[in-house]
Every structure is written in structure tokens, then in C-alpha cells.
Design a protein around this nucleic acid. Structure first.
Lengths: 228, 228
DNA sequence: GAGGGTTATTAGTTACGACTAACGAGCGGC
DNA sequence: GCCGCTCGTTAGTCGTAACTAATAACCCTC
């Protein structure tokens, strides 16, 4: 009982995935989508018209686009493929978490349902990818969580890193891994200076100082006193 | 105004792979290639001209094509990807050997060197795929073996199945697996009747009767008295 | 309410890789 | 030597998805 994959075509799938990621709430303007996909604005207008034709997106005023129900389902399937693949590449094939993004980006458009299911089975149905992103289930349901940016953690508080965003920047990934900023890590904010944007942290007992940008994308969950 | 454009591309790779498989010795006529790839003859002429431009194939009289050195190398890399992927899908993901062909056919064009190497490493550098085909090594060297068709085994002789060709026919694969005709199986020709094309075999102690076509593609190695 | 800047669209092109229809070249049979 | 078959090529189209250049629509400010 698989969800059918009608739209197909690499390019369409990328548009849908981008809309899912950019259009959490509001409709996405053409320009934003164009920048994100690194495609010219006219091309985007064009493609959006086709996707609207196919009832995968709904166009609002001034060309802004949002996913239809069907479009969102399709996008979630692409996201599922992407995240399962990243998980496979890192956890099974032992590739570095910073260098798997492009591979997953490519393969997500070419893995059949059969192979995807087999991968999922082989890995024991993981629910999060190596960056801590939740993996949509077979029905396209995505766990929604309320995470806070690490930079918002007040001085003196502790938390757990749950998600590390921006997996397309390899250097960033490498730095984070280096300093232990990976999902599951415990962090304590030793000193947050909102004025000059300098943050001193303690990660697994080690001190670290970083600017705001260096922390951007690290999402945490405040742990009151929950045991593991 | 753009530069010649280097090969890659799914379609090109399929042409190269087809030429490798069809053109063992002689050059391949346009029509044969067209039938094999299920593409119209004019399209083939066209594509061959481009591949010749790029020095991947050499065109002979009457349009017949054969791979150049560079073309053969490229084709062997595609074949390596295909066979490693099939091996992975069957041996690791536990998919059925009859149903992995299409998946491998698709993925072979999209797996990066990095992922391929990781798969190879993960599987311990296999040298044969699940159908017994040798896997070209990283340098594109392909083990050449002299195997005989099972139908040529004389009455009373025993042999070992080494290779099972024609992996794109699922029904066939299923039948063979059912009757134990898989690489590594020991077979004995109980009665070969060249006249009416009826063959009686013994596979792992079980009798089986088959017509010539039912055996076509099963390649064996005569074992004199080798142990193991 | 008239500019000016941002944003979106229209129009026209390009590349790739397939297609059909129609033409031409080789070759066997008589 | 001509007929006709098979095989290959030429010519012209199509669909997808990108592009640039030019234009139009909107929004904000004065």
C-alpha cells in the first residue's frame, strides 16, 4: 500500500521539496524560490505554472506559491527519501555526515519505493536522520517538534542538541562535529553575550567559544530534569 | 557557444553499456543497437554521431559502431556500478534477484564514486554479482572466463553453474531460482536429447526436465575433480 | 498621484534526446 | 541490369527545463 509517485521528474521534485522547506507557513515568493534553487526567476514562474496546472501547488497573489495537499504529500515523500538515504549513507556506509548531502540529493530522485522500503527495513525504521531531522513516515507524517536555537539558551542553562540544520555546508558540518555539536550532545551555556554575539559553551565537559553565526542552525531542547 | 560538453548522462551511458555487451567482437549495426535499447534507428544514428564526436565510439562502414578505448573504459565503469548495485540489493537488502535489475539499471547512472566505493567496501569487495557475472574492478579490468552453455553438457557429465544470463526477465529468474539453477549449484546431465531439445537434469539431487530455451543463459564450468 | 525600485511575467532561445516520415545506398535474386 | 528488401540517414518536430532581455505589475514614498 504505497503512496503513488505520480509527479516524478527530478526538477519537479526539487521544487516541491523547496516549497516544503521554505513555505512552512506563508506562501513562497518566486524570487525566494529562485534563489534557493539557484534557478532564474522566469524559469521558476514557468515551472510553478506547470505545477499549478497539475494541482501540486496553489498560486497566490504576486506569484507566491504554496503546496496543495497532493503537493505536500509528494514533497514529504521526497523528504523521506532524502533523509532515509542520508541515514543510510552515514550510519551504514560510514560516510561522513558532512559529505553525504549531495549524494542524497541526487539519489532521492532515483530510488524506487521497493529499494527505499528495503533500506528502511534494513536500518530498523529509523525516525531521525544523522542531523537529527525527523524522517517522515511512509504515510508522509512528519513529527513536528518545538526546538529552540542554541543561541537563545540563557546563561547558566543546559540543554540537549536535537537537530543540526544546514547540512549542505560541509565546512560548517565538519566544525560542529569537531567540537561535539551533534544530535544528542549535552550543552551548557556558560556565558551568552547578546550584545557582541559571543557565546561561551560547555559541550561534554569541554569549553568552546563561538560567534552567533557559528551556532546558527543548532537546535536544542531544554531539559528540565528529564532522565534520559 | 558552450564547450563540447563532457559525456556522462544517463542516455550516453546506456549506449556505451549496450555496445560493451553487444559488441564483444564485431562492430554493432545501428538496428541491433536500436532494438536492444528500444530506441528508433534515427535516434541511434544521431547519438552514435555524437559519441563518435566525443571519441567514445568509432564508426565503421554502414554505421556500425564499436567502442574506442576511452568508450570501453567508460562502459566498464557503468557495468561495475550496475553489478555492484545488484549485489548490494540482493545480498545486503535481501531483495529478490529477479526484481533488482530495473533498480540497478536506474541507480547505476546516479551513484557517485564515493558512494560506490563505500558500497564496495561495505560488501568486502565482491568479485561476482548474484547472477555470477564478474564485476569489473576499479581499474575497469573484467575477468574473462570460458564458460559453456548448460545445454552443451553431454549426457552423464556433471558441472557447476557459474553464471545466469538475462537478468532482465523476471519470470525466467524466478523459475531458475525455484529449480535451484543458481550460481554455485551442481548439475548433472541425466539425458540430453539434441534432437527434440528436451533435457533431463539433476540439480542438488532433484530431477528436472526442460526445453532448450528454458536453459538458455545458464552457463556452466565443467569440474574435473576440483574439491570445494 | 507620479516616480522609482522591486518583483513577476512574456517572449524568444538553447540543449538534449527522443520521435516520424521520407529518402537513399547495398545487395541478393532473377 | 533491374527489382525490391533491408538498413541507414536526412529533415523536421516535440517535450522538458533551463536561459537572457525586455516589459509589466505592484508598492512605497513624496
Amino acid at each position: 500500500m504505497s503512496v503513488p509517485r505520480l509527479p516524478a521528474s527530478r526538477s519537479r521534485e526539487n521544487y516541491l521539496k523547496a516549497l516544503l522547506q521554505l513555505g512552512a507557513e506563508a506562501a513562497v515568493p518566486v524570487t525566494v524560490l529562485a534563489r534557493h534553487l539557484r534557478i532564474s526567476a522566469p524559469s521558476v514562474t514557468n515551472m510553478l505554472a506547470r505545477l499549478a496546472d497539475e494541482k501540486l501547488v496553489v498560486l497566490g497573489p504576486r506569484g507566491a506559491a504554496r503546496l496543495s495537499g497532493a503537493g505536500e504529500q509528494a514533497a514529504l515523500q521526497v523528504l523521506r527519501r532524502h533523509r532515509l538515504l542520508e541515514t543510510f549513507l552515514v550510519n551504514v556506509l560510514d560516510l561522513d555526515w558532512g559529505e553525504v548531502h549531495e549524494d542524497a540529493e541526487e539519489l532521492e530522485h532515483h530510488v524506487s519505493q521497493r529499494v527505499l522500503d528495503a533500506l528502511d527495513r534494513f536500518m530498523g525504521h529509523p525516525t531521525e536522520d544523522p542531523h537529527g531531522h525527523p524522517i517522515p513516515d511512509r504515510q508522509g507524517r512528519l513529527a513536528r517538534r518545538a526546538l529552540a536555537p542554541l543561541a537563545a539558551l540563557p546563561t547558566g542553562s543546559a540543554a540537549e542538541v536535537r537537530e543540526v540544520r544546514g547540512g549542505d555546508d560541509r565546512a560548517r558540518m565538519a566544525r560542529w562535529k569537531q567540537s561535539g555539536l551533534v544530535p544528542g550532545a549535552r550543552v551548557r551555556m556558560v556565558q551568552a553575550n547578546a550584545d557582541d554575539g559571543v557565546f561561551t559553551l560547555e559541550i561534554a565537559g569541554r569549553r568552546m567559544v563561538s560567534g552567533r553565526e557559528g551556532l546558527d542552525g543548532i537546535m536544542i531542547e531544554r531539559r528540565t530534569r528529564t532522565s534520559r
